[in-house]
């Protein structure tokens, strides 16, 4: 569904992604792991159009999207759930969710998506009138996730959804990802050091110092020492 072909990304002089290629098959849950600051988030941003690429190509559902604006990508169903959330702090939870359905393809399904999201996160329903800035860290993360689900995504790029969460909230997030994956969404998940989520993965990729150093299915990946170290902390 997503085909990334030898992309290079720079922050100023700094070469962040070096000749990176990655394929995500339709309906797969793919995990991208690797140490902090080695380019995982940058790769997700490049897919969603928030970070321009210098060379290489990105294709989505067979079409070249390398130069497409972020809003056009959202319309196509590419949705990014950022690690640092980027909520609208002074708006209510409900308004945040409604803005999640801003793109014209999601508009007509707004009511149905809202009901589904509230079912998945009853906590957000309780707090729907509260400004987003008053939510706890875990709730804010749920809201970011829920807002992404409002966009009628076909492909979700999720950046470290469990970072800094208490263990029980972490399980909540994983259950939500499992639930969403069951609905046949394609997911690219950036995670590190979380053995639990590995059970769900179809494929696992390792990104180190801006280079893709390993790509393989779950069984091969989990047999690799580097992955064990990077991902399972063993």
């Amino acid at each position: 569904m997503i085909e990334i072909e030898r992309i290079d990304v720079f922050y100023g002089e700094f070469h962040v992604l070096k000749n990176v290629s990655l394929n995500v098959a339709e309906k797969d849950l793919t995990i991208l792991t690797g140490p902090n600051g080695h380019g995982k988030s940058t790769l997700l941003k490049a897919i969603c159009g928030l970070q321009p690429v210098c060379s290489g190509r990105i294709r989505f559902a067979g079409k070249d999207i390398t130069r497409l604006s972020p809003e056009r990508r959202v319309e196509k169903g590419i949705v990014y759930i950022a690690e640092n959330r980027h909520l609208f702090p002074q708006m209510s939870v409900l308004k945040n969710l409604k803005l999640g359905a801003y793109n014209k393809n999601a508009r007509r399904d707004e009511a149905a998506n809202l009901a589904a999201v509230f079912e998945l996160f009853p906590r957000l329903k309780e707090r729907k009138k509260q400004p987003a800035s008053t939510l706890s860290g875990g709730e804010a993360r749920m809201l970011a996730f829920a807002r992404g689900l409002m966009s009628n995504a076909r492909f979700l790029a999720i950046d470290e959804p469990s970072l800094g969460l208490a263990p029980n909230l972490r399980m909540n997030v994983f259950n939500a990802i499992r639930e969403v994956h069951k609905r046949e969404l394609t997911i690219l998940l950036v995670e590190q050091n979380i053995p639990k989520i590995a059970e769900l993965a179809d494929r696992i990729h390792l990104l180190e110092e801006g280079e893709m150093t390993f790509s393989g299915d779950r069984e091969t990946a989990l047999a690799q020492d580097t992955i064990k170290q990077a991902f399972l902390g063993m």
Partner: peptide, 13 residues
């Protein structure tokens, strides 16, 4: 309120 957040939900900046 959040420029990146707006781009994430598909608002044409």
């Amino acid at each position: 309120q959040d420029m990146t957040g707006a781009q994430i939900v598909g608002i044409p900046k």
